[in-house]
Design a protein around this nucleic acid. Structure first.
Lengths: 220, 220
DNA sequence: CGAATACCGGGAAAATTTCACGACATTGCA
DNA sequence: TGCAATGTCGTGAAATTTTCCCGGTATTCG
């Protein structure tokens, strides 16, 4: 390896997965993995001490997550080149990551060539997005996600909140002093407005939009 | 590689991750990776054609999941040795995997040595569980939590997983090659067994038990 | 073998969801 | 002011889903 190799810091909490990156990347001439981290805090420390040319960063990790790690590194070094490499095939995460300062976003379902290509692109100063995420972003742009908060009337929103919190239609009806039939009608209308076909999708949508947080789940 | 090497089939939908397994495993004398699959159906096909000595199986994959793949392979071949290797550090998944016929359960956060050790153990006919899961199992045993995994049959658990992941009853029926009526019946039975009255409660229960993680929520 | 369990799905009753419709109140603006 | 648009509430009836009960097969286990 020449002294002119591009240096890389790998961040992922799964060691065997890091082994995978390393194996793929070191087949490429001009690339050298100089350090590995298993969480965001360690990544930040190693970035400071190693000053790598590129960071490849997973998102879901214990402690401070990948997005936060990206933010901290970029805060310290405006020129830092960070490529997010994650299992999350989700436009929302991609937007968050890029806004935090990542220069690329590639999903783990991508073939190795895509990762290598993205590494090269980011090193060359370009933004790299894997095709599946391009597609997700296009879709969400086109559809304009139905944000519950702005498509629902106040009453509907309130009913949605209660649906997520309370138990039965009858209980909600009593809480609101309306007929159970009205609650059922609104429930149906809400699903229609939000474009979901089942209650399960409804809960998932609510979770994505932060309407229901995981700590809100009541007794274990 | 001698003709007496143990043959291995790798199953994981992330190609770079498979690269990681392969790299770690092939450093071991006596092991040979002979095939790779990216989903459960392909895994089943390749198992039939390649008859490997060991299958290393991820759980979260598109289409039929890892648990169902384990079930099918074991249904065809009682002696099949399957080691589950997954990111889910969750006692419920482990219980289900073992009940479906897996001979081992190792998390991806484990160091490579643990994976290699587990591979050897399973090949030798022993059951292999990584230490973190041992701990999880101990805890859940102590808490005596009435977990979904304990009360549901493997098939029911699989349907629950799909209910949380896919969209409609019909789609799930097609995935599992059973009638929509059966899925509806199982759906009802699952709610009964878990003591919940609505799909919303069902999702909340699943969230509490870690069956569905907040980041698993599909497209944004 | 017999008992227990898992699994598949039909039939029919029960319950819910959805649709069409009307009534009333409030808002907002021409 | 008048009136159109929107939100809220509810009924009735149709459409659909859920639930319960059943029979049948396959597998496991003592």
């Amino acid at each position: 390896m020449s002294a002119g190799d591009a240096t890389i810091l790998l961040v992922d909490d799964h060691s065997v997965v890091r082994e995978g990156y390393r194996s793929v990347l070191e087949k490429q001439p001009g690339l050298r993995v100089v350090a590995e981290a298993a969480d965001g805090a360690e990544a930040y420390r190693l970035y400071k001490s190693e000053a790598p040319d590129l960071v490849i960063m997973d998102l879901s990790m214990p402690g401070i997550g990948g997005i936060e790690a990206v933010r901290r590194i970029r805060q310290r070094d405006k020129g830092a080149k960070i490529l997010v490499f994650t299992m999350h095939q989700n436009a929302g995460f991609a937007v968050q990551a890029i806004r935090a300062g990542a220069r690329g976003y590639v999903t783990k379902t991508s073939p190795p060539e895509t990762l290598v290509r993205a590494v090269m692109d980011v090193l060359a100063g370009r933004i790299a997005i894997s095709p599946d995420i391009d597609h997700e972003l296009a879709l969400s742009r086109l559809a304009g996600e139905n944000s519950a908060a702005d498509v629902l009337t106040p009453r509907e929103f309130e009913v949605l909140r209660l649906l997520l919190a309370e138990r039965t239609t009858d209980e909600i009806a009593e809480t609101l002093h309306v007929s159970p039939k009205t609650v059922a009608n609104l429930h149906s209308l809400i699903k229609d407005k939000l474009g979901v076909g089942s209650d399960i999708e409804l809960v998932r949508l609510a979770l994505r939009q932060g309407l229901l947080t995981q700590v809100d789940l009541g007794e274990a």
